[in-house]
Design a protein around this nucleic acid. Structure first.
Length: 256
DNA sequence: TTGATTGTTACCGG
DNA sequence: TCCGGTAACAATCA
């Protein structure tokens, strides 16, 4: 099973090896002919992420903008390239490695202005050093929306997905339906710090793990509350509420 | 073949 | 303007 966008970002860390390299950008299944044309045989200057968006900067002042959505994958292989597996939209070929990007929801060429327009929409990213947690805290405190909705809004805080949302709220004893404006500054600050710790850990280990120091191989076994039946803390019944179209799991006894 | 899924956006009604 | 709900889309696997 795939491991969410933190892991995609870990894959992206590998992609950083592409920075400074001459790349051949190809579209094996003719699903990205525009990109293959504009970016064929070109030097990649930098690879970076803002939240769940990935950007490859190229020396002709164009960027490749990728968002993997729910199903997208990044697969890296050693060169030489083998036949594409599944729906490979773009293939980045360097001298020693090949990166396949499968099924992204966004896969487009941008210029600098478009890149800036995109990144302006993205809220403070838990994994970037230049992020200001106060932006998240003030947005949350000034909103009547539920904290579970706010955590999933990438323009409010960038990087959290549906698994982390349930896990983070459970770890901090906060009910998902509690409104942002009803949370204390310190509570939201703690949410930021805990989220940052969990995402950093996931990035480092390549696995989503909120049950710390877990050695389990199955994702579900490394979690506390997501898709569980019993709360590991109080042994109460775990329930799910749909918030922002997705199931959010909680323990009514532990989270208030 | 069907259902589920770690995401996002547009649109609509209150 | 803000907020919540719905549909649409993406690809893969069990």
């Amino acid at each position: 099973m795939p491991e969410g966008h933190v892991i995609h970002r870990a894959a992206n860390a590998q992609n950083k090896q592409l920075a400074g390299k001459e790349l051949e950008v190809s579209s094996p299944q003719n699903r990205f002919s525009e990109g293959a044309k504009i970016l064929s045989q070109i030097r990649c200057l930098k690879v970076e992420a803002f939240g769940k968006h990935l950007f490859y900067h190229f020396e002709n002042a164009h960027l490749l903008h990728i968002h993997l959505g729910l199903f997208g994958r990044i697969r890296t292989h050693k060169a030489p390239a083998h036949p594409p597996k599944g729906q490979v939209r773009v293939r980045l070929i360097a001298e020693t490695m090949v990166v396949d990007i499968n099924g992204p929801t966004i896969c487009e060429i941008q210029n600098i202005e478009e890149f800036q327009k995109t990144t302006r929409r993205i809220g403070p990213d838990l994994l970037r050093k230049d992020s200001d947690p106060e932006k998240f805290i003030s947005k949350a405190q000034n909103s009547k929306r539920t904290i579970a909705a706010l955590l999933m809004d990438q323009s409010v805080i960038a990087g959290i997905g549906n698994i982390f949302r349930s896990e983070i709220l459970w770890r901090n004893h906060i009910h998902p339906l509690k409104r942002g404006c009803n949370l204390e500054h310190g509570e939201i600050e703690t949410l930021w710090n805990d989220s940052k710790m969990l995402l950093s850990l996931a990035l480092k280990s390549g696995k989503i793990m909120t049950l710390l120091n877990s050695t389990q191989t199955q994702t579900k076994e490394r979690l506390n509350i997501y898709k569980k039946d019993v709360c590991p803390r109080c042994l109460g019944h775990v329930t799910a509420v749909v918030i922002e179209n997705r199931n959010c799991y909680l323990c009514e006894r532990c989270q208030t």
